[in-house]
Simulated assay, not measured.
Amino acid sequence: MNGALEFGSGVFGGAWPAVWTLAKIVAVVLPLLVLVAYLTLWERKLIGWMHVRLGPNRVGFAGLLQPWADAVKLIFKEIIAPVQADKPLFFLAPVMVMMPALAAWAVVPFGPGLVLADINAGLLYVMAITSVGVYGVIIAGWASNSKYAFLGAMRAAAQMVSYELAMGFVLVTVLLVAGSLNMTAIVEGQGRGFFAERGLNFLSWNWLPLLPLFVIYIVSAVAETNRHPFDVVEGESEIVAGHMVEYSGMSFAVFF
């Protein structure tokens, strides 16, 4: 690693810190986007199983290339803005939804020393930055100049704010257990204890002693992101596709 850093410094000179930071951001964001794409595929497969149908199974083996087909389709679809929409806010809304979701990963440690920003208030940063996404949803509904989109945005905002409270209280409990807001310290703290000393690190993680709160957090996280079965925000039979009803192409993909 030191050799690579010295080589990069010699090639890029004074611009190397910025280039190195950009490289780390790309190394975090690209796997995240691929993971999210396949999580949506898994979700569609699960819903298909619950409906006693196959789900996506045509593109690639067992439908494994379906996310890539969807991505190509959405990239080349035209982005249409309603005539009466507030254009600047209309195109700003997807950015305000996407950027906080990605920025939150800046303080998540992927290994010893493998973290973009090892700040002492990491947990507080995550709670603060993830709460910004609701503004993008509200702006999307308002800027679309559509009653359906605005009603969907209000429902989405109400649901997101409501479940943020539960998630916040759970994270405060984790803070009390770890005794630190630093994400690295929280992760390292889970490597100590009765089970960790016997090589069963998985059982020493906070999910076991805080199991009820872990369940609450998972349920709240699913509801916070408006995924099934908490997708009342979209309510196809009532308000079509919620706050993103007027969006198309990649702007729709960002919301989805």
Rank of each mutant, 00 (worst) to 15 (best):
P100H: 08
Y135M: 09
V134S: 01
L5F: 10
V254Q: 08
G191R: 10
L92W: 03
V107N: 02
N120E: 11
I216Q: 05
A140V: 01
T130H: 05
V187L: 02
S251T: 05
V172A: 09
R155E: 04
W105L: 13
V254P: 03
F252Q: 12
I186Q: 03
R192A: 13
T21F: 07
W42Q: 11
Y148C: 00
D118V: 04
H243E: 00
E238G: 01
L74V: 06
A104W: 12
M250W: 10
A81G: 12
G152N: 04
A104V: 12
A104S: 15
M160I: 07
R155P: 05
E224M: 03
L124F: 06
L64D: 08
G235V: 01
A149L: 10
F230T: 08
E188V: 05
D70I: 12
V177E: 14
M160T: 08
L54R: 10
M1C: 08
N201P: 11
V240E: 00
G14T: 11
V52R: 15
G122C: 00
W49R: 14
A104P: 02
P229G: 09
N2M: 15
L22K: 08
I139T: 08
V245A: 13
D231I: 01
G133Q: 04
A149F: 15
E164R: 01
G235S: 15
K45G: 10
V240I: 14
G179Q: 01
G136L: 04
Q84R: 11
E197Q: 11
I216L: 15
A143E: 14
S162H: 04
Y217S: 07
L165I: 14
G8A: 13
L151A: 11
N2D: 08
A143R: 11
F91M: 11
G235D: 06
T40V: 13
H243N: 03
L74P: 04
A128F: 06
V26Q: 06
K73Y: 10
M98Y: 06
G122H: 00
Y247E: 02
L210P: 05
M50E: 00
V240P: 01
V72L: 04
A128K: 00
V174M: 09
S144D: 02
F255P: 11
D70S: 13
V137I: 09
G152S: 07
S146G: 09
V83F: 04
L123G: 07
G249L: 01
G55R: 05
W42E: 09
E164P: 00
L30E: 06
